[in-house]
Design a protein around this nucleic acid. Structure first.
Length: 97
DNA sequence: CCTGAGCGG
């Protein structure tokens, strides 16, 4: 599960995000995308944890909270794409439906 | 990189 973190301060870094999310669980992965042309931070990030239950807790607690002067917008991120592409199909993951 | 859109490779 990946967490989408929006409305971030441009001064925020991956390490800062890791510390903040580490309060709710061990951070497995951090992603801080930037614009491919200028390299400027777009003000959002992606955080992944080892325990999904901790992610849900972090989302509910950090969403709407103020951080570095900006109100955090935390939500579950869209899955970028399945890593499989060869002949394959969609993942057999259990859908929410 | 000096910026404000919310979803990346």
């Amino acid at each position: 599960m990946t967490i989408y973190v929006g409305n971030l301060s441009f001064q925020a870094t991956e390490d800062d995000l890791r510390e903040v999310f580490a309060e709710y669980g061990e951070v497995s992965r951090i992603s801080l995308p930037t614009d491919r042309e200028t390299g400027r931070k777009r003000g959002f990030a992606f955080v992944e944890m080892k325990d999904e239950s901790k992610e849900d807790l972090a989302i509910s607690e950090l969403d709407g909270a103020e951080w570095l002067g900006r109100e955090l917008k935390v939500n579950k991120a869209k899955p970028r794409e399945d890593s499989r592409g060869s002949g394959g199909g969609k993942s057999l993951s259990n859908s929410p439906y």
